[in-house]
Design a protein around this nucleic acid. Structure first.
Lengths: 79, 79, 79, 79
DNA sequence: CTTCGATGTCC
DNA sequence: GGACATCGAAG
């Protein structure tokens, strides 16, 4: 019987994951749509993707700097 | 003036995309959480990922088979 | 001296890689040629690519013989 | 009858393609091996890939320049 | 740290 | 839409 319980649990986990992956795909499609709309408005999507990537990198670096600052503050007993 | 209008439009497109990418990342994190929970329940996540991938392929496979059948039907003048 | 040894080693690695990439490109071109020949014989290359893809997926599917995977698949009622 | 001839032709084309794809994959694996060996020798593979890409681009540009030169020579009736 | 899968870019 | 390279996760 515990086998069928495990099987049921497994099924539920798998289904949760598949549901989330569907949602993720939906959002990816939305992103595609925005790029398509931008393109039809006359923007160059390749350049736009470049900008998005750069901004993500910059954000990443800012976050790293913040984390480092936090580390230092903690090391110094500040809060 | 039209330059600043374009710049504003571009900014809005970029922000919509960045918003959607945030959401996408949130869902990706949710998926990670489900795998972590599965793992702590005793399941092997590597195998689970395998299953998810296979089921996706099988679904894809079924869809392709349907499309191929359609191609053949059209080639034969059936509808 | 060790610098020039490293530089020489690096050069050799790069050249091996470039040689292999040339070979790979040659084969990719051969594949293109076969599709072109098929097309001129009257076959629809899009459908052919479809078939090649399906067969690859089926092969992949058949190669999945892992016991744990099998267990999970059974638990989910897959076969 | 012509159907079975076509079917046989198709099968042969598909098999040639699959054979070539196997070869291509083998070479791709060889390339991976060289990178792995380079890495274990202490080289940074990311940088190496960068170099390979740059050299390919440079070669591409040289080839383009050569083609242009050839065009000019032909236009001028030189050989 | 290394392998592998997923994502994104280029053609 | 397909092939390829890069990036990031997972073990």
């Amino acid at each position: 019987m515990s086998d069928s319980i495990s099987a049921e649990q497994l099924r539920l986990f798998i289904e949760r994951i598949e549901r989330l992956e569907e949602e993720k795909k939906g959002i990816a499609d939305d992103i595609k749509d925005v790029y398509a709309e931008s393109k039809s408005t006359g923007f160059d999507t390749k350049t736009m993707r470049h900008i998005v990537r750069l901004r993500k990198m910059e954000k990443h670096h800012r976050d790293e700097a913040d984390a480092l600052l936090e580390t230092y503050r903690n090391a110094l007993g500040l809060h």
